[in-house]
């Protein structure tokens, strides 16, 4: 059985983008995240990408099964999660702003 708490505990002040190789939605998520960070002047926020296709065990570790997904540190050690290809700019900006 997976224990997402272990993986999420590693989330410090960085963003984690869970992707699956070069799948279309993963590709779009990378692009949308990079564009948003740049436009919001948040280019200094550390962003780490985890390829679940290359390392499927990480899916179980994070307990995230819809991809792509953007994770940020949340209260009580649990990450906040934003699913999707991050194409909805308002949602993405709010997510980044609350972090």
């Amino acid at each position: 059985m997976n224990d997402p708490a272990d993986a999420c505990a590693q989330l410090q002040q960085e963003l984690v983008l869970l992707v699956t190789g070069d799948a279309p939605r993963s590709r779009r998520a990378r692009q949308n995240l990079a564009r948003a960070l740049e436009q919001l002047g948040l280019g200094d926020i550390a962003t780490r990408e985890v390829d679940l296709a290359a390392d499927p065990a990480q899916t179980l570790s994070y307990g995230i099964f819809a991809t792509p997904a953007l994770l940020r540190p949340g209260p009580n050690g649990q990450p906040d999660v934003l699913y999707g290809d991050l194409s909805e700019r308002d949602m993405l900006e709010r997510f980044l702003a609350e972090g």
Partner: peptide, 23 residues
């Protein structure tokens, strides 16, 4: 496998199940 969506998780655009299938 506990595949429940995270509490409070939100959505921005479309997602796929490639990660799920990999796991």
């Amino acid at each position: 496998i506990d595949a429940r969506p995270q509490l409070g998780a939100e959505v921005s655009g479309a997602f796929d199940l490639e990660g799920l299938l990999a796991a």
